[in-house]
Design a protein around this nucleic acid. Structure first.
Length: 219
DNA sequence: GCGACAG
DNA sequence: ATCTTGTCGC
């Protein structure tokens, strides 16, 4: 797919913050997606003591979740890991990988938060806005926000609150297993996002998209 | 000032 | 994220 990549990437937290505050205004928080036929999973891994970032993207058919396309890209890691700025180290490589895709995905499942971010602009929002694709943030652990106790059954969920605002949801994707932290990335509502995440998670704790891109990224 | 802190 | 084997529990 064709992507309009930024001309340059920030070198400081101040520059990165400015970019987040500028782009967050472009996030669409309501459903604005086509019929979903292909779902993509994106993830990144690191090699050579984090000097190299390798991104992987897989495209699965939906709802049957069969692998249809995949791509890998590697580039020098160009931003340190600082909570709140994860996207600046992963997005450059992920965009390179997405460009190689033959199949245009209808929805992106990202490893990390979307709106559940201090400035409401986690990696799922960042990727969604830069690609203009509907995107969901699927994180394995909490970053910000609080929530009520969650029933142990698959499918149960609770809103994730931060400063009186619903920034996402905590979702039990498998009974009696640690929940997932779901938030809006771009062009999708929270209820719809929860539905897609569950439909992409037929067996394990993590969506098939995430499992497959994880495996590819760290190889 | 003291913790917390996506991947 | 990454370093890493066997082991505990549903």
């Amino acid at each position: 797919m064709k992507i309009e990549k930024p001309q340059s990437w920030p070198q400081t937290v101040e520059e990165a913050t400015a970019i987040q505050e500028e782009l967050r205004g472009q996030v669409i928080v309501k459903d604005d997606l086509p019929q979903v036929r292909y779902v993509a999973g994106v993830d990144a891994g690191y090699q050579e003591q984090e000097q190299q970032t390798q991104a992987a993207v897989v495209v699965l058919s939906f709802p049957d979740l069969q692998l249809c396309d995949q791509a890998i890209a590697r580039c020098p890691t160009q931003f340190p890991y600082i909570p709140g700025f994860l996207s600046f180290r992963e997005v450059p490589a992920v965009l390179e990988a997405l460009e190689q895709l033959t199949i245009l995905p209808d929805l992106l499942l990202c490893d990390g938060q979307g709106l559940a971010h201090p400035r409401r602009f986690g990696i799922a929002c960042h990727l969604g806005v830069l690609t203009n694709l509907p995107a969901i943030g699927v994180a394995k652990s909490r970053f910000i926000g609080t929530h009520e106790v969650l029933p142990p059954e698959r499918g149960s969920w609770q809103p994730l609150l931060d400063q009186g605002e619903t920034v996402g949801a905590v979702l039990r994707s498998r009974s009696h297993v640690n929940p997932l932290y779901i938030s809006i990335g771009h062009r999708i509502s929270l209820p719809t996002a929860l539905d897609y995440v569950l439909r992409c998670t037929p067996q394990y704790r993590l969506p098939e998209t995430t499992r497959m891109s994880d495996r590819l990224a760290s190889s």
